[in-house]
């Protein structure tokens, strides 16, 4: 029983990171109905930027904030430069652009910081495990950071006029434009926010999985699974889905399939959700008339 509880708690800790990245995916999906295949690589790039700042001697939290800001700008620039001309392009062209972005960012991180595995510092030092030995200091700390970030995002979308405008632009672009919302810029802000969230997720997972240019491939897959499980139209669903996938991954890895097939578990979740309940647990079923 102790073991199960331990697996669940540490599953929730990594689940928080999946939840963040799932939320980033959903933000872009809601606004544009695109799934950003390069979200993971962008997060990796952000983490490398943080790594550079920390090794240059900046304090961790200054680097943290600087990285979030830089990533936000990066997201906005990518939307403005790459995605804007593709607004009405067919799906194949979009997939092409996303995959192209993935390749470029991946190669760039490999080029600048080379492919060797690096350790990334964690701000949450604790020599003794916490909560009766169930969680490490980093796991607890990263969960707190994730929850605070999710709360901030919730408050931003619910209680600021900019958040309202962004939701409106995603929900009904034509009407929003008529009442004076600059829909194009709202999309760019959404990309920026998604990149910033991805950066936080990257910095939180890097101390666990170690820093290398491909570190996010697996994480991105779990985030996809989480987003789909919760309902890719629903931010709250994506967050819950992310946590759930973290727990499923840990329990499944410990008791069912073993650690070697953990990634396959994500594939199974994705296929199962799409087959059984394509709208996800909290999504609404969309009917389309033809």
């Amino acid at each position: 029983m102790q073991g199960v509880l331990h697996q669940i708690l540490s599953g929730l800790a990594t689940g928080g990171i999946y939840a963040s990245l799932a939320l980033a995916l959903v933000m872009i999906y809601q606004a544009t109905h695109h799934v950003n295949f390069a979200q993971g690589e962008m997060a990796t790039l952000s983490t490398y930027i943080a790594y550079t700042m920390v090794t240059a001697g900046w304090s961790y939290w200054v680097s943290f904030i600087a990285t979030v800001v830089v990533s936000f700008i990066m997201g906005v620039v990518v939307e403005r430069v790459l995605m804007r001309p593709m607004t009405n392009a067919p799906v194949l062209a979009l997939v092409g652009v996303f995959i192209g972005l993935l390749l470029i960012v991946n190669a760039m991180t490999g080029w600048i910081w080379d492919f060797t595995i690096k350790t990334f510092p964690s701000p949450f030092h604790s020599s003794t495990p916490l909560l009766g030995g169930f969680l490490s200091g980093h796991e607890l700390g990263s969960t707190v950071v994730t929850l605070v970030m999710l709360l901030c995002i919730y408050l931003f979308f619910r209680h600021t006029s900019l958040g309202l405008a962004m939701r409106a632009a995603a929900y009904n672009p034509v009407s929003s434009r008529l009442v004076g919302v600059r829909v194009g810029w709202m999309l760019a802000l959404g990309w920026g926010l998604a990149a910033a969230i991805g950066a936080i997720a990257g910095m939180m997972i890097a101390p666990i999985v170690f820093l290398d240019p491909n570190m996010m491939a697996g994480v991105l897959l779990y985030a996809f699974a989480g987003a789909l499980l919760g309902g890719i139209e629903n931010p709250l669903g994506a967050v819950i889905g992310g946590f759930a996938v973290g727990v499923i991954e840990n329990l499944g890895g410990a008791y069912v399939v073993g650690t070697e097939l953990k990634l396959t578990l994500a594939l199974v979740i994705i296929v199962a959700v799409l087959m059984i309940k394509p709208s996800g647990l909290l999504g609404r079923t969309v009917m389309s008339r033809v």
Binding site: L82, P85, M86, A89, A93, G96, V97, I99, G100, L101, L102, L103, I104, V105, N106, A107, M108, G110, W111, F115
Partner: peptide, 22 residues
Amino acid sequence: VSKAAPGAIYGVILIAFMYLMP
């Protein structure tokens, strides 16, 4: 040029083709 260059070139060319020569 570099070990990472093929990936970068693939990416750039992929995006360029999507825009210019679908």
